Amino acid sequence: MSKPINVYAVPEVRKALDEALPEIFSRLGYTQTFKLIDTKLILGYSLVVFAAASFLLDKKLPWEQSKPYQQVLVALYMILSAVQLWFNKFVEKGTVYQGVKKNDTVSVGAKYKKHSHEFHVSITNRKGRSLELDTTFTKFFNEQGYMQSDILFNWFKEQLEALGSKKTE
């Protein structure tokens, strides 16, 4: 059994639910994929490399010699920052789990409402079918703050079955 959390603290609930998803979907036969996380890391590390290169150029060369290189590095940094912003806003969109099962994929996104027990869950599969659900996270925890894994597992299982039977719109 997991350690108890304060169910009135949204960050604690978010962390507990996000950490439970890989195990829940593993029980459903999915293997977690890390494509979004890897892409995010590559973008972030690339930004660090450009910033470090700029720093080293500034440290080693006089300003007039490093100016053309600095301009290129700053331009690349700005472009990559814009790509990272676009990626976070339009591609990742709050995705907390991605998994693969045979020829199916599932992507789960969650948005938590501040100062509320409600959160929004979106589940999407490879066929383009998606479910948008609003629920309360208190039903997945008992009064002492322990997560009820079986309730969460059954809830996701029901949602995936509903998603599988949903017709493409």
Rank of each mutant, 00 (worst) to 15 (best):
F34Q: 06
Q148P: 10
V7D: 04
Q65V: 06
D18R: 10
K113A: 10
K59V: 14
Q98C: 04
K166L: 03
E118C: 08
L56K: 09
W86R: 15
M1K: 15
L80H: 02
K60N: 07
K15I: 14
Q65Y: 14
E23A: 11
L56H: 05
A53T: 08
V10R: 05
K15P: 06
A75C: 06
E169H: 05
L85Q: 08
A82M: 13
K113F: 15
E19F: 04
S130P: 12
A9Y: 13
S130T: 12
E132F: 06
L76D: 01
A16V: 00
A82L: 12
K35D: 08
R27D: 07
S2T: 06
V7C: 03
G99P: 05
N103M: 14
V7W: 01
L131D: 00
I42C: 08
Y30A: 00
F87H: 06
Q159M: 10
F87C: 00
L76G: 11
S116V: 01
L152F: 05
Q65L: 09
R27L: 02
S130Q: 13
V7L: 08
G44R: 14
K157W: 10
Y45F: 11
S122I: 07
A53V: 08
E158S: 09
R126P: 15
N154F: 11
M147C: 07
G109S: 15
W86I: 14
S107V: 09
M147N: 02
Q70M: 09
K167W: 08
H117C: 10
T31C: 05
M1I: 06
K89P: 14
A53C: 08
S46F: 12
F90G: 15
N142G: 03
S165N: 04
K139S: 12
L17T: 01
L21R: 01
A75K: 04
Y146L: 02
I151Y: 13
K35H: 15
A110W: 14
K101A: 03
K3R: 03
S116R: 02
V72W: 13
A82E: 10
Y112M: 04
L61G: 02
L160V: 05
T168N: 13
K166A: 07
L152A: 01
D18W: 10
F137P: 09
D150I: 11
K93C: 13
N88Y: 01
T136Y: 08
E23C: 07
V108R: 02
D18T: 11
A82I: 07
A9S: 11
E143S: 14
A75N: 06
M78P: 01
V91Y: 11
N154V: 10
D38N: 13
F55G: 08
G29W: 11
A162Y: 11
Y45P: 12
E132M: 15
V121P: 10
L76Q: 01
R27N: 15
F153R: 01
L36A: 12
S54F: 11
L73E: 00
I79C: 01
G164N: 15
K111W: 12
L41P: 08
K3F: 03
F141C: 05
